[in-house]
Nucleic acid binder design. Sequence first.
DNA 1: ACGAATTGACTGATCGATCAGTCAGGGCTA
DNA 2: TAGCCCTGACTGATCGATCAGTCAATTCGT
Lengths: 213, 213
Amino acid sequence: MNAAKPAVAPVVSQTIEDILLAAEAEFAERGFEGAGMKAISVKAAVSQALLHYHFGTKERLYAEVIAQRSKKINDERNALLDQIDLTAADALDRIFEALFRPPLGPAGGERPYARIFSGLVVGRERNQALVKEHYDPTAKRFVAVLRRVIPAGDQGTAALCYSLALGSLIAMIGRDGRVERLMGRDAPLKTEEILRLLIAHAKGGALALISQT
Amino acid sequence: MNAAKPAVAPVVSQTIEDILLAAEAEFAERGFEGAGMKAISVKAAVSQALLHYHFGTKERLYAEVIAQRSKKINDERNALLDQIDLTAADALDRIFEALFRPPLGPAGGERPYARIFSGLVVGRERNQALVKEHYDPTAKRFVAVLRRVIPAGDQGTAALCYSLALGSLIAMIGRDGRVERLMGRDAPLKTEEILRLLIAHAKGGALALISQT
DNA sequence: ACGAATTGACTGATCGATCAGTCAGGGCTA
DNA sequence: TAGCCCTGACTGATCGATCAGTCAATTCGT
């Protein structure tokens, strides 16, 4: 009867969603150690004790933020990979697009997760374990798909193409404005422009790695 | 007479050197916020108060660590750039070698600075200012040199080649073991091997960016 | 002897975490 | 329906620990 009433209950409550969003923003701004539970609770407009009630420790709250966001990114990536015809001429371009587009997010939107994503490459123990758990499975799929597309590609070369391409993505989204500053631009690069440049670079690098094997 | 006695006084005392080394290791392990002045003082085998006597604040100690290490890296990079014949066929390879080799350090050595170096790409305000101060000048020289070597290279393209290459370097040294894990290797990659692969990838990516401009 | 170097003892602030307790609401019994 | 109880959600107050930073006193080098 009531149109505003959702047919199914949300998997998480609105409050928990608010906390996770606030936590994501705070962790992105200050890093794990720099972030404060108090600051997160203020940002989420709840009491600090509620954070511990729902998540136990700061460590688990952080892990939950990573888990939620990585799931969205991995789902997007896998969906894009599913659509690719691996025998088509532009297969390599579209594989890298599947790698780059989800973390870049919507065209005009903010990227609060970008700094956390970038920070994951810095191998502190906490992040290493989370990367291994949440990102390695999809990473392995990328490596496998790359192997089938690049001629005579062994696993080592494919894994390198993946890793180095990911590094260049970090360089683009991890810091604010440095690339534009070195380029001599005043306006920030648009998402589609970033995507085009990253794909071209990754593809060129991949082909170079293959031909010198 | 005494052979062990240095001819000139060191610019910094041994104690200060010890503190800076301990601080570098601690900052690398835990990040700026995670690092503790107490832990640094223990690692350097001095009192915590001595850290404040010499450096004032944690912030200034961190800045000094970055300044010292970046100076070494920039000096090495500039020396390598000076030796390059920009008209030679392998000029592009040698430019990227000048970019990659200094942060990679000696062949068999540890890389305690690698994680700090990687962390600098994550654009928190503190790091942004330090990068701009200590790394931008040499970065601009790389961009200028790249422009002269790559055919029809505008500043934007050259800056992209620089930035994306740097990102792939981060991917290789920032995390421990992930690249090797995805490659299916058990032994870590040797420095010279890393260098060869990074150069090949960066060169291929650069040429691809140019040809599609 | 004099200044630079170094120390132990200490401070206020802030951290993550814990606690007892409030409150609204849903089910159960009679 | 009325009374009771249970539970999940949430809070203010506060805990002990740790943090960066301070300072008077002491040692060291010359």
